[in-house]
Amino acid sequence: MSTARDDILSNIRRSLGVHGKEAPRLASVQNRLAQTPAGVIPARGQLEGETKTAMFIEQAEMVQASVARLASAAEIPAEVARYLREHNLPATIRMGADPLLTALDWNATSMALSQGPSTGHDLNAISVASAGFAETGSLMLTSGQDNPTTLNFLPDTHFVVLKTSDIEVGLESMWQRLRARFGKALMPRTVNFITGPSRSADIEQSMLLGAHGPRSLHILLIETA
């Protein structure tokens, strides 16, 4: 008895009039997978230095993220405390094991710290982005102990740290970074691109913030770790 897999593949081949062993077809597929041609890359993100950072901020703010620029990572605890205080939010923060965060002196603030993936009852969380890109003001976060994926979605308020040196042009530069870090064709379990806080337009097409994910996204842009 033929399997569903074999049937589907042979139906496809019959429809296309091929047998699947044609050298030019195999070469065409192998070349594309090996060479990964880039296609059209918008000029919008193709900037350098401060203009690229400015474009990232402009795009992120257009999608209702807020951005704070900090000179160094050491300023993070105070900025988080300030944000929570000003928004009348409880002084709690949950984070993963990212050394950039755990090395900080949180004692100077009176915040209650906790570590690990979200249980669904954390109001505030902080993560470190692997990178970001100027074209659309998006952040890239990858799964793992340093920055558990649940922290990106369950809390109401999400703080994300991004180094200005990690701001790139567009998605293509994210792929290059992933390949450099994990190997060609290899990926972590989850890669999240986050562009603003959660929203829905499912009721009468009016856009409302705070659907199932965070109601607010505060990006902490740091010059140096």
Partner: peptide
């Protein structure tokens, strides 16, 4: 780049997620 613009007029949807396999040995969630 054409999907979200054509659908909702967004440059990029809020969440674009790539999922590959089950959680890795030392992943705390997934």
């Amino acid at each position: 780049r054409v999907l979200a613009r054509s659908a909702t007029g967004q440059d990029m949807t809020v969440y674009t997620t790539l999922s590959t396999g089950p959680r890795r040995a030392d992943d705390p969630d997934g």
